[in-house]
C-alpha cells in the first residue's frame, strides 16, 4: 500500500458519465445493499447519495437494527479498500491516524499508517471513544489528510467515514460535540423493519449471512467518476435560493438555539445533486432537497432548552420548516 502517492484526481476519466449510466450504477449499489438490509431502500439511497457527495455519514439508531450491516454492505458493494475501527474508550488517536516508529534497520522513523488510510472507514460506536480520539478522526474527515510528526499524508479518494452511534444514553459514552457533528454530511436512522421485511430477513438468514455473498458492483474509479458527474448536475438559481432559504429558516427559527452552518448549505446542495443524478436527471429539483433536508440539517441544529424539555426534536423542526418555506420565494408560485 502506498500512501504518499494516493491518487488525488481520477486518472483521465475516459468519458463523462451519462445520467443513465449514473442511474444504473447507483441502482446496482442500491440493489446490492438492499439484499442485506431489507425494506430500507430510502435510507440506503440517501446513504449512497452522501457517499457520492463526498460526505460522511453518521448512522444513529438503537443497537441491532443494522447500522453496521449497512455500512459493511455499502463498503462491500464498492470495490475499494475498507477499514473498520471499533471505537472503545481506550482507543488512541494514533490508532486512527497511524504512528511513526523507529526502524532499526533503516535507522529512521517509519510511518505506520493507521486505520484511517482506506477508502471507506467504518467507525463503529464512535461515541464510545474518548474525545481526544474522536477529535483526531474528525480532523481527518474534514482535511482529508493526516499530519504526523510534521509530515502530511493525503488520504485516498474516495474517502468516506461511516460512523455509527447509539442514541441511548449509556455508561462510558462520549457524545459527539456539536462542532464535530457538523462534519457529518448527514445523519440517518435506519429504524426497525416492518413485519414483512423482518420475516424476509429471517428467511434469508436461515442459511447464510447475505453479507458474505455480497459482490462489489462498482470500483473506486467508478465512484470517483460518479462523484465528478454528480457535481455537474445543474442547480437552478431558484433551487439555490430555496436551499439558502431553508438553511436561513433554521437560523431564525425560535425553537433553535444554533442553526445550520454554511457548510450545511454546501453539503445539502451537493447531496441534492447526487440524488438528482441517481434519478437520471441532469438538473436538481426541490423534491430532492426536501428528501435530504432532515438527514442533512437535523443533526446540526441545537434546539433551545424549552424545545428539548417539551419533547421536541430537531427532525420535527426541520420538517416544520419544510412545510412553511415557499419553494419559490415570490408569492403565488409553488
Amino acid at each position: 500500500m502506498t500512501f504518499e502517492s494516493s491518487p488525488g484526481q481520477p486518472p483521465q476519466s475516459p468519458a463523462p458519465l451519462s445520467p443513465q449510466e449514473f442511474k444504473a450504477t447507483a441502482e446496482g449499489i442500491l440493489t446490492n445493499v438492499e439484499w442485506v438490509i431489507e425494506g430500507k431502500s430510502h435510507t440506503i439511497k440517501l446513504a449512497i447519495a452522501v457517499m457520492l457527495a463526498e460526505g460522511h455519514l453518521l448512522l444513529e439508531d438503537v443497537p441491532g437494527v443494522g447500522k453496521t450491516q449497512l455500512a459493511k454492505a455499502l463498503a462491500r458493494s464498492v470495490d475499494c479498500s475498507v477499514r473498520r475501527i471499533q471505537f472503545t474508550p481506550d482507543l488512541l488517536p494514533s490508532d486512527v491516524t497511524g504512528v511513526s516508529i523507529f526502524d532499526p534497520e533503516k535507522r529512521d522513523f517509519v510511518f505506520k499508517p493507521g486505520a484511517i488510510f482506506g477508502n471507506l472507514i467504518l467507525g463503529d460506536e464512535i461515541n464510545r471513544a474518548s474525545p481526544k480520539t474522536q477529535a483526531a478522526l474528525l480532523e481527518c474527515m474534514e482535511e482529508r489528510q493526516v499530519t504526523v510528526d510534521g509530515n502530511t499524508y493525503k488520504l485516498r479518494s474516495p474517502f468516506m467515514v461511516i460512523a455509527t452511534q447509539n442514541p441511548v444514553e449509556m455508561e462510558g459514552t462520549y457524545p459527539l460535540p456539536e462542532a464535530q457533528r457538523d462534519r457529518f454530511a448527514a445523519r440517518l436512522a435506519i429504524g426497525y423493519p416492518d413485519v414483512n421485511a423482518e420475516l424476509a430477513l429471517l428467511d434469508r438468514r436461515e442459511e447464510y449471512n447475505p453479507l458474505d455473498a455480497l459482490r462489489p458492483v462498482a470500483d473506486a474509479e467508478m465512484i470517483v467518476r460518479m462523484i465528478a458527474a454528480a457535481r455537474a448536475v445543474h442547480l437552478a438559481p431558484e433551487l439555490k435560493r430555496y436551499v439558502v432559504d431553508l438553511v436561513a429558516a433554521t437560523r431564525t427559527n425560535p425553537q433553535v438555539r444554533l442553526g445550520a452552518s454554511p457548510r450545511a448549505t454546501l453539503q445539502l446542495l451537493r447531496c441534492t445533486q447526487v440524488l438528482a443524478a441517481m434519478d437520471g436527471r441532469d438538473f436538481a429539483l426541490p423534491d430532492d432537497v426536501q428528501q435530504l433536508a432532515v438527514p442533512v440539517l437535523a443533526h446540526r441544529l441545537i434546539p433551545t432548552t424549552e424545545t428539548t424539555m417539551g419533547g421536541g426534536d430537531t427532525k420535527a423542526i426541520v420538517s416544520d420548516i419544510l412545510r412553511h418555506v415557499p419553494v419559490v420565494s415570490h408569492p403565488g408560485r409553488y
Binding site: 426541490p286 423534491d287 419544510l322 412553511h324 418555506v325 415557499p326 409553488y334
Partner: peptide, 11 residues
C-alpha cells in the same frame, strides 16, 4: 389547497 411549500411535482 396547495401550500406554497409544495414542489410542482407534489402539487
Amino acid at each position: 389547497g396547495l401550500s406554497d411549500s409544495l414542489t410542482p411535482r407534489q402539487a
